[in-house]
């Protein structure tokens, strides 16, 4: 029984809660978004829900590992890997829809990633997993299929990551108001953080790396929160706060006003 495992479980639980909360807040504020941004909004809701669904069984898995319940550990790993395999689907839809604007094309291409995810799962479940290896900080499984790992690396990791980087470049190369740059770039950085470290979490063989990867997933979730709901101090620091003003209704006679000014 290791305290490290409990710390791991706590981080997983924090990721679960914050991802679900974020998905819920996004869905609840649906009315505030325009019709054009709704498909992208719902893909984000699905993405964060999938992150939550991945880390909910992982939390139980870590607690099971703490109590030495190997069967529950294996069962929860098998459960967690299902939403994990499809995280790339809403992500790809989100990026493609925002860039290209076509729901149909984005949906068809996302479907391809459903196939990637399904084949990853198929190879993973048919070839099996090795483990768990329970250590001081985590419980690690090894995927017993090189094809599954390759599918994940090539199909589910490299392509979506390249899409995020491309989209980020597009934003950084464009001159735009500061608050818009913040609003578009930070969610992408957050998603990239979560997505990349989820993969690291899944394929790592080192327990400390698993813990650190999960910590970064948590940081990514917090970043996503900050992207959509930046606190006032951060807004002031970055110079992105909205100046509160009321329109000056009185007609101004410029000549009169200039006369009033004591130069």
């Amino acid at each position: 029984m290791n305290a490290g495992l409990l710390l791991n479980a706590t981080i997983c639980f924090a990721i679960t809660i914050s991802s679900f909360a974020f998905a819920w807040v996004l869905a609840r504020n649906e009315e505030e978004h325009s019709e054009k941004s709704k498909p992208a909004l719902w893909s984000l809701v699905i993405l964060w829900s999938l992150v939550g669904l991945t880390y909910l069984p992982t939390t139980i898995r870590m607690i099971a590992a703490y109590f030495g319940k190997e069967n529950l550990d294996i069962m929860m790993y098998s459960l967690a890997v299902i939403p994990f395999s499809f995280v790339a689907v809403p992500l790809v839809f989100f990026i493609l829809y925002v860039i290209a604007g076509s729901k149909k094309i984005s949906a068809y291409i996302s479907l391809l990633f459903v196939l990637f995810g399904a084949s990853f799962l198929m190879f993973l479940f048919t070839k099996g997993i090795i483990g768990p290896i329970v250590s001081e900080y985590g419980s690690i499984f090894t995927i017993n299929s090189d094809i599954a790992i390759n599918i994940y690396m090539m199909g589910l990791f490299v392509i979506p990551t390249a899409m995020i980087i491309g989209f980020l470049l597009l934003i950084f190369l464009q001159k735009m108001p500061k608050h818009l740059r913040y609003r578009t770039a930070l969610p992408l950085v957050a998603i990239s953080f979560v997505f990349d470290f989820m993969l690291t979490d899944m394929i790592t063989m080192v327990d400390v790396m698993q813990l650190v990867a999960r910590l970064f997933v948590l940081i990514g979730t917090v970043l996503a929160f900050l992207a959509y709901f930046p606190p006032m101090t951060l807004q002031e620091k970055l110079g992105i706060q909205k100046y509160q003003y009321e329109l000056y209704e009185k007609d101004i006679d410029i000549d009169e006003e200039e006369e009033d000014v004591d130069v």
Binding site: L26, H33, S34, K36, S37, K38, P39, A40, L41, L44, Y97, V98, I99, G101, L170, Q174, M176, L180, R183, T184, P187
Partner: peptide, 14 residues
Amino acid sequence: KKNKRMGEIIERMP
């Protein structure tokens, strides 16, 4: 064109 395209992208961003 660049400005319009970027405006549309931002419009689609939730």
